[in-house]
């Protein structure tokens, strides 16, 4: 133990620090002298030692749930897979861990550029999306995030972290019914008040709804970042059992500013088992998770074109 807090140690602190074997030699000598004069105080020290043991016994036997461990390992594997192609292509020498992790994030972003949404849509969905575009005037184009190879930022790493979180949270809520306890509304009409309370902005049901989706439930969530967030879920009407998640996060400060206004970003593509799109509007970040990338595209196009005024 160093001097701050120890030099002027009173008897209580001396006995407790003695029980913890935290005394410096001069303090130990002082304690020994005290115990010679007050031998019963050795019992006090023993009490403290036993209290410590009891605390260890009461607080200690806790293990992480196996499912949590599996999820973490799966997340790590996913990052490793994201890293591997670039590592093979770039160099035979292993890059530093920080660089490889950064490359993983970049690789994630590259996937968003790799395949054109328009080329991958079915004719029907393409027609639907085109119609929406025409209706709203075609003011914005969907753009995917373009991360320059030498321009990786902490914000982009944060974006990757969020994409993983919202994707995993979406899956968790589907798989684990107990997670659904966080959802405290089940009517779309209740969503504006929930959003007002948590993210500070009310969004009308009309601006949350989307054709082919039926509102399921919503509640507070904890999307990484400083701003509070809400998790809303919708059922895909034509696909029983399929759920879409919309996470809405308040942009608390510049560290939460991830997206350029008017653009949507494909953070994960559906060839990863789910699609995650993100965009920002009116001081809020939106993250949409669905199995179908085309649905994400259509939804984000509509949202991007008609940003809610709160």
């Amino acid at each position: 133990m160093n001097s701050d807090g120890a030099n002027d140690m009173n008897l209580a602190a001396l006995l407790r620090a003695g029980a913890d074997d935290e005394l410096q030699p001069d303090q130990k000598a002082h304690l020994d002298a005290h115990l010679r004069d007050h031998p019963r105080d050795t019992d006090r020290i023993e009490f403290e030692r036993q209290l410590k043991e009891a605390c260890g016994r009461v607080m200690g036997p806790i293990s992480a749930p196996p499912a949590l461990r599996e999820r973490l390992i799966a997340s790590l594997d996913r990052i490793a897979q994201d890293n591997s192609p670039r590592q093979e292509a770039s160099s035979t020498a292993p890059a530093p861990e920080s660089v490889r992790l950064a490359q993983g994030v970049e690789s994630l972003s590259e996937q968003t550029r790799r395949q054109s949404f328009w080329n991958r849509m079915t004719p029907a969905v393409r027609a639907l999306a085109a119609a929406i575009l025409l209706l709203v005037g075609g003011l914005f184009l969907l753009q995917v995030v373009n991360v320059g190879s030498g321009n990786l930022s902490l914000a982009q790493a944060h974006m990757s972290e969020i994409a993983t979180f919202v994707g995993d949270e979406h899956d968790r809520c589907v798989i684990d019914p107990s997670r659904a306890a966080k959802f405290n509304i089940s009517e779309l009409d209740a969503a504006p008040a929930l959003l007002e309370e948590i993210v500070g902005k009310s969004i009308s049901p009309a601006n949350l709804a989307f054709g082919g989706l039926a509102f399921r439930d919503g509640g507070r969530c904890h999307v990484p970042g400083k701003g509070d967030s809400v998790h809303l879920r919708f059922d895909v009407v034509d696909q029983p059992g399929e759920t879409v998640s919309l996470f809405i996060q308040r942009v608390a400060d510049e560290s939460d500013e991830l997206f350029e206004s008017g653009k949507s970003y494909e953070l994960q593509s559906d060839n990863q088992g789910r699609a995650v799109f993100g965009w920002a509007a009116d001081g809020l970040n939106y993250f949409l998770v669905a199995k179908d990338e085309a649905l994400c595209e259509s939804y984000s196009i509509e949202r991007g074109l008609t940003p809610n005024a709160g």
């Binding site: 749930p65 949590l68 861990e97 972290e161 979180f165």
Partner: peptide, 23 residues
């Protein structure tokens, strides 16, 4: 709260894997 604890743990490991955090 076990659920919140899991959220915290996941955030911890997500942060731990940030490039700056590893450095």
């Amino acid at each position: 709260n076990p659920e919140q604890a899991e959220d915290v743990v996941q955030d911890v490991y997500a942060r731990a894997l940030r490039p700056r955090a590893v450095a």
